[in-house]
Amino acid sequence: MRQAWFIAATLSVSMLAVAQQQPKVINAQFHTESAGAGLSATVNTLQHSNGPLWLGYEVAAVPGSHFSMCSDDSDSSADNGCCGVYRLEDSNNTFHSSDHDQTTPASIAVLVRIDHEAVDKVRFIRSGCRLDAGGLPFTWLTDVKADDSVAWLSSLVTADNKRHTDQALAAIAMHETAKATSALVSFSASTNPLWLREKTAFWLGAGRGHDGFLALKKLEDDSDPEFRKKLSFDLSVSHDPSAVDDLIGMAKSDKDVGVREQAIFWVGQKAGKKAVAMLKDTVENDPEVGVKKKAVFALSQLPKDEAVPELLHVAQTNPDAAVRKDAIFWLGQTHDPRALAYFEQILEK
Rank of each mutant, 00 (worst) to 15 (best):
D211Q: 12
S236V: 13
V323Q: 06
D90C: 06
K218C: 05
E261F: 04
K229F: 00
K252A: 09
A206K: 13
A118P: 01
R208L: 14
S242I: 02
L111C: 02
K199M: 12
A275L: 02
N318W: 06
R197G: 02
G205W: 00
K325A: 12
D254P: 00
I125T: 12
W54Y: 15
N44W: 06
L299Q: 02
V25K: 04
V59D: 01
G272W: 07
F265D: 05
N50V: 14
M250V: 12
A4H: 10
T158W: 05
V85L: 10
A78N: 09
D234E: 08
I108Y: 07
A339S: 15
Q21H: 13
A28R: 00
S68P: 07
D160Q: 14
P225C: 08
L88P: 06
L131P: 03
S107Q: 09
A277N: 08
F6A: 13
N44T: 14
K252L: 15
K24N: 14
T139S: 04
A78L: 09
Q3W: 10
S182P: 05
K24F: 09
D305Y: 05
H239M: 11
G81Y: 02
R123G: 10
T191R: 10
D320W: 01
G212C: 06
L247T: 00
F213T: 01
G209L: 04
L11A: 11
E348G: 09
W266L: 01
L311R: 00
A295T: 02
A307K: 01
L55P: 07
A180P: 05
V185A: 10
N27K: 01
T10S: 08
F67D: 05
V150W: 01
H116A: 14
E176A: 13
S71H: 03
P52L: 07
L204V: 05
H313D: 13
V18P: 02
E89D: 14
Y86H: 13
V119I: 15
A60D: 14
T282P: 05
K145S: 10
P23K: 06
S74C: 09
P309H: 06
L312R: 05
W5C: 06
L53S: 11
R208V: 01
V110T: 15
N285V: 02
G258H: 11
I264G: 01
F30A: 06
L204G: 02
D305I: 05
A19D: 09
A215W: 03
D115I: 06
L235C: 09
D73C: 07
A133L: 02
K293C: 03
N93C: 07
N50L: 12
H210C: 01
A201V: 13
S127E: 10
G64V: 04
V150E: 03
K349Q: 14
G207I: 00
N80T: 04
D222L: 05
S127I: 00
D166L: 09
S155K: 11
S107L: 07
V296L: 08
V276M: 10
T32F: 03
